[in-house]
Design a protein around this nucleic acid. Sequence first.
DNA 1: CATGAATGAGACTTCATTCAT
DNA 2: TATGAATGAAGTCTCATTCAT
Lengths: 236, 236, 236, 236
Amino acid sequence: MSPTLPRPAEAGPRQRRKQARPHELLEAALTLFVEKGFAATRTEEVAQRAGVSKGTLYLYYPSKEDLFKAVVRHNLSSLIAEGEALAGQFEGSSSALLGRLMHAWWQRVGSTPAAGIHKIVLAEVRNFPELAQFYSDEVIVPAERLFSGTVQRGIDRGEFRPMPTHEVALMLIAPLIFMAVHRHSFGACPVHGGMDVDPAPMLQTHLDLVLRGLEVRAEPVAPGPLPTRRGKKTPP
Amino acid sequence: MSPTLPRPAEAGPRQRRKQARPHELLEAALTLFVEKGFAATRTEEVAQRAGVSKGTLYLYYPSKEDLFKAVVRHNLSSLIAEGEALAGQFEGSSSALLGRLMHAWWQRVGSTPAAGIHKIVLAEVRNFPELAQFYSDEVIVPAERLFSGTVQRGIDRGEFRPMPTHEVALMLIAPLIFMAVHRHSFGACPVHGGMDVDPAPMLQTHLDLVLRGLEVRAEPVAPGPLPTRRGKKTPP
Amino acid sequence: MSPTLPRPAEAGPRQRRKQARPHELLEAALTLFVEKGFAATRTEEVAQRAGVSKGTLYLYYPSKEDLFKAVVRHNLSSLIAEGEALAGQFEGSSSALLGRLMHAWWQRVGSTPAAGIHKIVLAEVRNFPELAQFYSDEVIVPAERLFSGTVQRGIDRGEFRPMPTHEVALMLIAPLIFMAVHRHSFGACPVHGGMDVDPAPMLQTHLDLVLRGLEVRAEPVAPGPLPTRRGKKTPP
Amino acid sequence: MSPTLPRPAEAGPRQRRKQARPHELLEAALTLFVEKGFAATRTEEVAQRAGVSKGTLYLYYPSKEDLFKAVVRHNLSSLIAEGEALAGQFEGSSSALLGRLMHAWWQRVGSTPAAGIHKIVLAEVRNFPELAQFYSDEVIVPAERLFSGTVQRGIDRGEFRPMPTHEVALMLIAPLIFMAVHRHSFGACPVHGGMDVDPAPMLQTHLDLVLRGLEVRAEPVAPGPLPTRRGKKTPP
DNA sequence: CATGAATGAGACTTCATTCAT
DNA sequence: TATGAATGAAGTCTCATTCAT
């Protein structure tokens, strides 16, 4: 399917199992890399969790490092296009679009195991220089472009007041990343009296706060045109 | 100095060097842990960077894991109290206080090597369960309390509109963490066409956006605060 | 054909290919064993080179070790008898016979890929004790007997001066082995300014030198043969 | 001492042991490499034989391959100069010189464990291309030059009849190599009825045969000047 | 206190061998 | 017969930790 899966082959009947291997391995590896980090994960553990032996892992991925890169690539391939497609076709207000984007991201990524990817990439890029460029090109830069483009769209349409789009985009993204990473670090630890991070109200408040902050309005106090800030819930 | 430093001793004058050892080791360890992560950092490298032999490191810290915990504790001890002191004595507006807190945090932590602590803690907590409770109690919960308390202060004083303080606090914190972590992951990698994250404009825009979002203003009929998940923070 | 080839089968016409398998495998194995040694040769490589799958190899040879032994045996089976046949029927001078034997050996063995057998056997006998006896019985002792017998024939016929035949035989053989081995070690490596070993002039010079050394001629008072270690070969 | 020994250091008192390590390791490695070959020798075995642990080996040699190269270099460093020094200063007949050279080589190399070096180099050069150049430059070419130079000297001085010196040199060397290699392959295996290769009579017969073959003499039968072919024993 | 040589458990990786298809 | 996916024992190498000096 994706370029991260070696030897797709054309599915002989007894190869159903074989074809599933790469996926199972990538899934197992994702879980463990997210849980323990790259270095602390043993290849044998990955194999066991995928239900195969140590040797089989190396049949599909020539090294632990390659497995790691494949995990990252595999979990990214979906993200790339989706958001941009959504943004390109959207007709409604920019506020609504931002809401849609954020909710979509959370549903498709943030709430899935793939969210852990962000954690491990943050933790390991400096050990995998090639990954930095790859992830930057495929994830970070497109994401920034998507959000700052949307902000610009709002400004252009008079929905948002003029603001530095790059910085605003980061502001919009930061809480999403924060939640995703938290979910796979402290969120996964049993802590007494710990802070809980609940995605739904977080997202709602985030949008409420930020859209209000972006809002154009008559300076002193005039109630103004009240932009469509009902972004708190985008009906399906 | 701090409880993380073993054997404070009673400071003979010619022992300044020896007394400095633990600090030098912690500093070296911080740098390397942040750069490569816990598992990928070799104790010998830490020792070398601190200018001592491998054996000497074990004179001060009984194991690599203990060294790691000491690094975390040491770089946290200062943070805990400062912010709260600042908040307790502050007389000005809550907006100004939020600005002061954020700038202070960035100056004292975000821009220093200690910012990397967040990165490694996020990456490694699941491998160090004890650390989770400790870090939660000493850093996360106090920080959340500091920020949500300040938001509450603003609401109470009529400066901010009523909002769920917990979620707002996270919103306020997330970009700071985001910047700090980015600085030590992608920010430290040579990437072509990568996204740059400049703290000064980020902070400014962050405050601008968020304070505007919190601002109370005349509105046709404010629909009331969104249904809050946490009754204790947002009174009706 | 030879006892080293399992399952000769009764040669159906369309089974020529299948019957060729063992030969192809032995050939591939010979090449690779000579090139890389026993341990460094992978069975899969042998199979690939023979155009079959890894599993098929094990259909014909139960283990890598057995394959190795088969390679050795197969490449030896021809050598054993040929030389002795040649010597038994020869009518000419012993000098001429020696020349014939050497040229024949070079043509039939030295210059063929089978020459590499000597290299790998020398390198590996100590890891294959059974091979030692086998190779000694089938190759070394017969070869020595052939050459020392021929020397003895020369002495008996008054062509050669009396000399210790065993040692002379080794002298005769050594340069042949030397050339054969060299061909598959240094001769196969790209070396700047390396020594070249050209078989034709080597053989010629070898014979020239040694036959002259063996020659009987008038001498003042031949001091008699050197005290021989082996009474059986050099009669007083 | 030699460039193959890492970290010579200047002999602190408690380092006597440490300094001996490289030698002990090289010795152990030589023995095992010769006995089993490079691939079949386990690093742990080498360490055990040297009386240290697995890890210690890697303190001195960064990899098995480096250890192998060090073994080869170490056992060669002595050979290089000795022969040439001997030849340069020699005043006697060329026959005597050849005898001296051969006996010297056998005493210094052939009869020592280092003789096995030839076996492993022959067996492994193709797996270690760098070694080929090194060994060619340091051993093969100088040795050939030494012997062919000596033959040329004999021809120039009228002691030997004109012959192709390169080929004669190889003829002279081949039995030496043959003996050295045999000693570490079949010579080390328990074989019933095997051929024995006894160095002393071999050398004696070799010289006897070859010097007679090189000898200048009046064509038909004339006894000639009888060159000093008493090379069989060169008095001290 | 400080050193750094030594250790050995443990991780990654290879590859001969098996076996269901 | 032939395949090639799967296995797991075994080997190389690393590195946290110890300890004699």
